[in-house]
């Protein structure tokens, strides 16, 4: 009833992406499948009327996180995982962890009021304007804290990336300007 055709398609796409991300052998393929899964999730949000969440998901996860993962795979050496048994200790641990996460989420959903108040409740009409007001008024402190934290992270990253130079002169100007000198 509640499952429209578009929901079905997007759900299958998202799940297929997730399954492929787990099962494919090449890490890059896994990352791309994960990106498909992210995109499907974003489309699901949009389908549910949460445009902002969906587009933010697309922008952040497909545009940034997937690229980050892909770069991380590229810059490490082997992109091929070793074959291992499904019921290896790591696999079992992973399965247990997944189950635990699922249980917590399921408990949260079931115990929250939304599940009991039936599907007939209309989705609240949230416009961009309202989200903006909420971020700038009610949640302005968390927003600023997050901004501060991200700035600190960025500065830390810059400090890590900066190569310590011996002198005050940048390396570029120390290179011989005159081609004759080099010859």
């Amino acid at each position: 009833m509640g499952m429209t055709v578009s929901f079905l398609i997007l759900a299958i796409l998202t799940l297929a992406g997730g399954v492929a991300a787990m099962t494919l052998r090449r890490l890059v393929h896994c990352a791309l499948a994960l990106a498909v899964s992210f995109a499907g999730l974003a489309a699901l949000y949009v389908n549910l009327g949460a445009e902002f969440a969906g587009l933010a998901q697309l922008l952040v996860y497909v545009g940034a996180i997937a690229i980050l993962i892909v770069f991380a795979i590229l810059l490490t050496h082997s992109s091929e995982t070793e074959l291992q048994k499904v019921f290896s200790p790591a696999g079992i641990a992973g399965a247990l962890l997944a189950l635990a996460v699922f249980a917590v989420l399921a408990w949260a959903v079931v115990s929250s009021g939304a599940a009991h108040s039936a599907a007939s409740v209309a989705a609240p009409q949230t416009s961009m304007r309202e989200i903006g007001f909420a971020l700038m008024q009610r949640y302005v402190l968390p927003l600023e804290v997050i901004a501060l934290m991200l700035t600190a992270a960025m500065i830390g990253a810059v400090i890590l990336a900066v190569r310590p130079t011996s002198g005050s002169e940048p390396a570029e100007t120390q290179a011989p300007r005159n081609p004759e000198l080099r010859a």
Partner: peptide, 14 residues
Amino acid sequence: LDTGVLYFFAVGAA
């Protein structure tokens, strides 16, 4: 879209 500009950049990210 109510979020037109955001949509543009989000799609462009892909």
